[in-house]
Design a binder for these strands. Sequence first.
DNA 1: CCACCTCTTTGACGATTGTCAAGGTGGTGC
DNA 2: GCACCACCTTGACAATCGTCAAAGAGGTGG
Lengths: 113, 113
Amino acid sequence: MVSTEFLPGLASPVLGRSVPMDPDAAHGLALRLKALADPVRLKLLDHLLVCPSQEDCTCNLAPLVQLSEPTVSHHLKKLQRCGFLTKERRGMSVYYRVSPRAIDAVAGALRVG
Amino acid sequence: MVSTEFLPGLASPVLGRSVPMDPDAAHGLALRLKALADPVRLKLLDHLLVCPSQEDCTCNLAPLVQLSEPTVSHHLKKLQRCGFLTKERRGMSVYYRVSPRAIDAVAGALRVG
DNA sequence: CCACCTCTTTGACGATTGTCAAGGTGGTGC
DNA sequence: GCACCACCTTGACAATCGTCAAAGAGGTGG
């Protein structure tokens, strides 16, 4: 893990754009793709996107993916650091919510057809 | 690595589609994302997309990313196994070429906005 | 205050990954 | 045949990753 800070925004589309991709763009896109490249994290994102309230807390997410809470917390943090999730504390619970634009930015960077 | 065979095709869009994503879809998409989630492999794909002939061989790609030929061969194999690259032997050289549709399929699976 | 609940951090562990050196395969040309 | 070139495979290594148990941090309610 490079840093605990959020990653900088994804600088416009990058793959196959006539000008060779610069190393920082490759590194940044790779970090984001790595954050998405895990079945558990995909399942968590998918659940948060399809569930009625569009948000959920760790104690509900852990049984959903059948993993311990610390492990789920770790996955959520990874997604959050890339801007794919936001979190909000309300009372005792912490509610996570997807940031669709951050995910679409990655999808857009891959679009090449 | 699960298998030396090609992965099956990506079964239509998967993320945030009102029906919860099934485990196989999550696993399959994660494998493809993992194959893309490396700066070297992104650089290789980008080069093959922007270079005039749209194809190149290992001996040209290795110096491009400043890695040994075996290492580049390993990366190319990983991309090939997910259908992102095709290879074709002509004479002594092996020419690699991008399959844009395979990459777009992943981009489409991520599109969620 | 204390008991309790939710969540995160830390430390450890095995599994996976990216890399290279060494050796093997396949094709070219003398 | 042999020498050579491009490429791939194998085996090893350090680094990273996913996981959990244990302990800490933050908030609720008696």
